[in-house]
């Protein structure tokens, strides 16, 4: 469900850019997704095939780069990677951390003809 809406945003942005460039075909679309968005790549790919049907992105590939979560510690300024849940500083054990990366939902570029 969620992936449908996200995918709609991706395809809309790609089609708009392609139209501006007078493209006849979109070969690929590159996106970056942070793991904390809870987006499942498989569901996104499925939504992509549905949404691109009968568009010039019909046969394009969706290249997804998943980004790990990264935070910086508010106590000791250490930067560290973590999973969806364990945003805890490995240096000093503090939970007072600010997220640097992990909630991205970005369309990077498209490849067109």
């Amino acid at each position: 469900m969620h992936e449908m809406g996200i995918c709609d945003g991706i395809v809309t942005a790609a089609l708009e850019t392609a139209a501006k460039e007078r493209a006849v075909c979109i070969n690929s679309i590159d996106v970056t997704i942070g793991v904390l968005t809870e987006i499942q790549e498989e569901a996104l790919q499925f939504a992509f095939t549905v949404i691109t049907k009968d568009t010039i992105a019909d046969r394009s590939a969706l290249n997804v780069t998943m980004l790990k979560a990264r935070s910086v510690c508010g106590e000791c300024a250490a930067e560290f990677e973590h999973g969806r849940f364990d945003a805890k500083c490995p240096e000093c054990g503090s939970f007072v951390c600010s997220l640097l990366q992990g909630r991205e939902l970005r369309i990077d570029s498209i490849d067109i003809d």
């Binding site: 945003g9 942005a13 850019t17 996106v31 939902l105 369309i107 570029s109 067109i112």
Partner: peptide, 14 residues
């Protein structure tokens, strides 16, 4: 041809 977009996917909503 590669074209950069570099936009938030939810930019419209935002």
């Amino acid at each position: 041809m590669r074209v950069d977009i570099a936009k938030g996917i939810l930019e419209k909503n935002d």
